[in-house]
């Protein structure tokens, strides 16, 4: 198929950047979206133009490294990661706009690459259970009811790609944050630090420049792992409980 691509090019954080149009022909519907960009980059390189910078690593939808705004949708028209999006989701003759994640908390590094270090710093603020190596009791010492274990797993599926932030009109990171709060809060091992965790992580989230939740729900729609919006309810509940406890 033949496509028109409008791709964001920006040489660095200080450049204003802009959309550049590229025409692609003979694209196979079995290609992934990123393989299509690989083909474009080979063409640019052959023409002496610098290839387009974009992030990707595992290319099987689990590492969370890739993430493009494709015609206004985080990760494109399907609910999946950009690397798992295939060209069969597009039609011959389509014009596709490709931009980086847009959020104040995700400054642009170059072209389609952004800095998501803020997500790491939210985890540093308390997204863990303090269990030094070697100090663990036997794994069967504490049974975990299956429902809790399953819900913890569901929330832990978050891959930290940042699509929720990019999709949100207020660039909120609360789906990411709520997922971690829910993952650790569902487990007995996560209880001792539960109050302190939520207070500290919410503080860091706001400090990084992520917006507050405005109940739009675009985050959950864009999430390639389908993390439900109710993890944000859990986040709010945990925060209220922690504040009541005087944390």
């Amino acid at each position: 198929m033949n496509l028109t691509l409008k791709i964001w090019r920006q040489t660095g954080p200080d450049d204003t950047g802009g959309l550049v149009t590229y025409r692609m022909s003979d694209i196979s519907p079995d290609m992934s979206f990123l393989e299509m960009l690989d083909v474009l980059n080979e063409k640019l390189n052959a023409n002496g133009e610098e290839p387009i910078a974009f992030d990707s690593d595992c290319r099987e939808g689990i590492c969370g490294m890739c993430g493009l705004m494709i015609s206004g949708h985080a990760h494109g028209p399907e609910r999946t990661t950009t690397c798992q999006l295939h060209m069969r989701s597009f039609k011959n003759g389509d014009t596709i706009t490709v931009e980086p994640w847009r959020a104040e908390a995700f400054p642009i590094v170059r072209d389609l690459v952004v800095d998501r270090g803020g997500l790491d710093r939210i985890i540093q603020a308390g997204g863990y259970i303090s269990a030094n190596t070697g100090s663990a009791p036997d794994a069967h010492a504490t049974p975990v009811p299956k429902d809790n274990a399953d819900r913890a797993f569901m929330a832990a599926e978050c891959i930290g790609c940042g699509a929720c932030v990019a999709a949100c009109p207020n660039a909120s990171g609360m789906l990411f944050l709520g997922a971690k709060i829910t993952h650790l809060g569902e487990l007995p091992q996560g209880q001792p630090e539960r109050d302190a965790r939520v207070v500290s992580m919410v503080g860091q989230h706001d400090h990084e420049g992520f917006g507050g939740c405005t109940n739009v729900g675009a985050c959950s729609q864009a999430c390639p792992k389908g993390i439900p919006q109710d993890v944000i309810s859990q986040l709010n509940k945990d925060l209220r409980t922690a504040l009541k406890h005087g944390r």
Partner: peptide, 22 residues
């Protein structure tokens, strides 16, 4: 065996049976 203990203590959500065991 220590690895499993360590990971469970960190909150790794391994698959469990209905009795709550791994």
């Amino acid at each position: 065996a220590n690895i499993i203990d360590q990971c469970v203590a960190q909150g790794v959500p391994f698959a469990r049976e209905y009795g709550g065991l791994l």
